[in-house]
Nucleic acid binder design. Structure first.
Lengths: 342, 342
DNA sequence: CTGAAAGCGCTTACAG
DNA sequence: CTGAAAGCGCTTACAG
């Protein structure tokens, strides 16, 4: 049915081996023979069967990317970065949307012969797959977006604007190993000598979308403690929080300042425009893909791009001077149930 | 290196053929032999090489999905639907983000042996690939999300609320074959005897994100004609438009009503909450995938789910009664350059 | 019920 | 420089 190497060989009056040699440019071939082959390829509109090739070479140039929430636009940019780099190198990438990386999922991928996998699953759910000897990359200490500087910039601004009671909406549980952004945030508070207010750190069950942000802001409003600023673990949650604050009649930034994280395109279009920590996910995606390739082909010694990608604090209208608090000393305020802290 | 069928055969003291038979359940095998094989599979932790299998069976259970803007959350839901159905049927799907479907892209996919492809490219950019005999599906007259009823519901409400000058922000060019949603919209206007205002139909160059919506709203504000309602081709554009209207000091819905389309999760969190035409993209994704499978395996006679998926008009606070217009008869207003109409 | 063998379409030492 | 042949790991008529 499909035209194969054999057909080309016959038409060009050469062996199938020779066809391989000219197509892959893997051995010297007389120009004359070469032309004959190429002409036949053209004439027959021949296209190699990559499956057969993969079986023989043990390489598919097919990688998988596991993502937990394919709907988060943040991952969209990441994917574009991954695919951009992949395309350059002749790789194809399958995006699988799963909540946690299981051995079965990885097994299936191995069976399908993928050359490697990119895990974009937000830290917690990454298990150890080293025994499968399938090249795997994910954000690590040496290859990641670093939010630290940007978070420090944000907290510094908060301090300069007089904010002392700053909330954090996490979405994720705060009890376990705390989220990196949360750690950076706490470090920044300490560094700028702003007292931590654990009762203002709202955790969650893992969801980090608008609804989770709305919900978290609701709990924050009902926690009985005052606050003048809110930092959310991502923009989606900030959007949800903005809505809840608005419903509560609070003006942003007059009554409360809000900062998100990621820098998704919508963040510039909220009302008021949302300050955020802009990450360059496209770049991160590219870097992850290149890292993966160099793990697949250690000998290629790819020029690796920047490995630590600095996020940037982007100040927009959702941040302003802290309003005056009621002034009731904290120890005299009515008791409230503190949230868990990391 | 990897354990193959041969190893299993040796350990179980049978031929490789027999191993195939028990693994694929494709022939009767003595329970006793069967057990021997299964035990060997277990003991060796054998997993079949799907590449080799595909080469032999000419089936990969691998499909590709081409998407133009992987960042639009609308496509995120579509993908989840596709993947959900795919998973059920043992398929894996590769998502490629491309702007237009080229023959080369399709060729590559054919070479890689994908069983079929799903085109989610927004109509215009779909060429004819029937000559490649690669099963292909996309939204068609018989399998699609229908916005018509919902759009009629919206226009009816507009009419009841006194709106007579309704703008449309398209994002896409209006000159060529008009977008289905636009056609439905015009039909609805006519049906409810609302005069069309072509000068309020703002086209675009193809971008349909927040920036495009902002930009289109800007042009609308400067077109010199009054309007009391705006319908945008998707929610992203509505979000951008909302922002521009807000900047212009217009209150939504007091001064102008706004309705988006798609029903992305953010739409419920804009300020004010955005009325929208909610599509069930997940369902559409499932249906497309099933359709593709039944095209790949005509003999399987899959129970096809609903083929026309009705979108639903969701009324939220962004819609209200029309404000009183200035009252200057239209033919006396200062001249303006009308936009192109479809 | 089981197995020997040809075949899927490619690659690649090896020999000439 | 070119080709015959074995091999990649599976499937599947066909024969026994």
């Amino acid at each position: 049915m499909a035209v194969t190497r054999k057909d080309v060989a016959k038409m060009a009056n050469v062996s199938v081996a020779t066809v391989s040699y000219v197509i892959n440019n893997t051995k010297n071939v007389t120009p004359e023979v070469r032309k004959r082959v190429l002409d036949a390829v053209d004439a027959l509109n021949y296209h190699p069967n990559l499956l057969a090739k993969s079986l023989a070479t043990r390489e598919t140039r097919h990688v998988a990317m596991l993502v937990d929430n394919i709907q988060n636009p943040h991952y969209g940019r990441l994917m574009r970065g991954v695919q951009h780099a992949a395309e350059q190198e002749g790789y194809i990438v399958s995006v699988l949307s799963i909540n946690y990386s299981t051995r079965e999922a990885m097994r299936e991928l191995v069976s399908r012969g993928v050359d490697g996998v990119i895990l974009a699953l937000g830290g917690y759910s990454i298990r150890d797959f080293s025994d499968m000897n399938l090249p795997t990359v994910y954000e690590t200490a040496t290859l990641q977006t670093s939010y630290r500087k940007a978070i420090f910039d944000m907290v510094r601004l908060f301090r300069d604007l007089g904010h002392r009671r700053i909330a954090f909406l996490s979405g994720l549980p705060l009890t376990e190993r705390p989220h990196v952004r949360f750690r950076d945030f706490m470090d920044a508070l300490q560094s700028f000598r702003i007292e931590m207010c654990p009762e203002l750190f709202i955790d969650g069950d893992g969801a980090t979308d608008e609804a989770a942000g709305y919900e978290a802001a609701d709990r924050l409003l009902n926690c009985g403690s005052e606050f003048t600023a809110v930092f959310t673990v991502n923009d989606l949650m900030a959007i949800g929080a903005l809505k809840r604050l608005w419903e509560a009649g609070l003006k942003v930034p007059a009554d409360v300042s809000v900062v998100g994280c990621d820098g998704i395109s919508s963040s510039a279009y909220t009302i008021p425009p949302l300050s955020t920590i802009q990450s360059h996910s496209f770049k991160l995606g590219e870097a992850l893909m290149l890292q993966l390739i160099s793990q697949i082909h250690p000998e290629r010694e790819l020029a690796m791009p920047v490995q630590i990608i600095e996020a940037k604090f982007v100040e927009r209208e959702s941040v302003g001077p802290a309003r005056k608090l009621s002034g009731v000393p904290r120890f005299l305020q009515q008791p409230h149930s503190p949230n868990q802290t990391g």
